[in-house]
């Protein structure tokens, strides 16, 4: 309200009135802002509390977890982390993280490459049967995952892929995740074609156009794809449960369950500590990528 024009100088009374009015407006605004932030803070806290409690509890002793309701440990200890890391198996948690990485890395890379290729084809080229194929692709999006589990299992068993990571990432490396293809196609449709046409006039073939022009403009979308695939794969429990049977090949999602299964008296602090450890990579990756996530979309080469 600072830009409020002051009244003509002759009318002194009006001037004073105006100043009082501006002051009261300011007060009201400050009050409403305070109320708004308090409400937002409260709701935010409610939503975050389980997470905060999880982190706090991972530093508690096993007995304290159930005795005190607060999230601050009375006697903070790293016991949960140290013992949890060792696990009750011959392998420590580092091994399981490595196993997860062996699944996540090829899966994310394969997804990004294959989705880009397939989406580029759908978004930029006309070929016979394009509409039908795209409808089929979208159709698989609507298909519940469980209905393909058994046929897939039998297929991979016949390939001799059981108890290997191949069934977990190979389908994704062939653009098996329709959602990601769809996402990239939508992003591509919104991108102006002028730059690609300019590249073709400059002498680039379709593949060069893709690599040198389209992919750099797609980076924000590809980061999103990589991020989602990373988090979903980290969190995937059912896939490894079905295909991986030897403990030495367990990824972290199975390893966490392992510590609940094998000990009779659950060492909750270890489980919680390892849960925090499992969450960390996903959180770190997300916050690192967030910047690109937001700023990337505003890359402008065409005058808007």
């Amino acid at each position: 309200m600072s830009a409020m024009p002051s009244a003509p100088p002759v009318l002194d009374d009006d001037d004073a009135d105006m100043r009082a009015y501006v002051a009261s407006e300011k007060r009201r605004e400050r009050l409403s802002a305070m109320l708004r932030y308090t409400a937002l803070f409260a709701v935010g806290l409610i939503m975050l509390y389980p997470l905060i409690w999880l982190v706090g509890a991972s530093f508690k002793t096993n007995s304290e977890i159930f005795t005190s309701p607060g999230f601050l440990p009375a006697e903070p200890t790293l016991d949960g982390y140290v013992k949890g890391w060792q696990t009750s198996t011959p392998y420590n948690f580092g091994r399981f993280f490595w196993n997860t990485f062996l699944i996540v890395a090829p899966k994310v890379i394969g997804t990004v490459i294959s989705c880009t290729l397939v989406a580029y084809g759908f978004a930029r080229f006309d070929f016979p049967g394009k509409k039908l194929l795209f409808s089929l692709l979208i159709g698989t999006l609507l298909l519940p995952n469980v209905v393909t589990r058994i046929p897939q299992y039998i297929l991979f068993r016949d390939f001799g892929w059981l108890d290997t990571y191949l069934p977990l990432w190979v389908p994704s490396a062939f653009a098996g995740d329709a959602f990601f293809v769809f996402m990239v196609v939508q992003f591509l449709r919104a991108l102006p074609r002028d730059m690609e046409e300019a590249a073709r006039v400059d002498g680039a073939n379709s593949f060069q156009t893709l690599i040198f022009i389209v992919v750099p403009m797609l980076v924000p979308a590809l980061i999103s794809v990589a991020l989602f695939q990373f988090m979903w794969t980290m969190n995937d429990f059912l896939g490894p449960l079905i295909y991986i049977s030897s403990v030495e090949k367990f990824p972290v999602s199975l390893a966490l369950k392992l510590s609940i299964d094998t000990t009779e008296a659950f060492e909750w602090n270890r489980i919680l500590a390892m849960s925090v450890a499992t969450l960390t990579p996903a959180l770190v990756v997300f916050f690192l990528a967030q910047k690109y996530f937001i700023e990337g979309i505003s890359v402008g080469g065409v005058k808007g």
């Binding site: 102006p192 002028d194 730059m195 402008g300 080469g301």
Partner: peptide
């Protein structure tokens, strides 16, 4: 018309 410069 809209220059179509490669933005990156």
């Amino acid at each position: 018309q809209n220059y179509a410069l490669y933005p990156h």
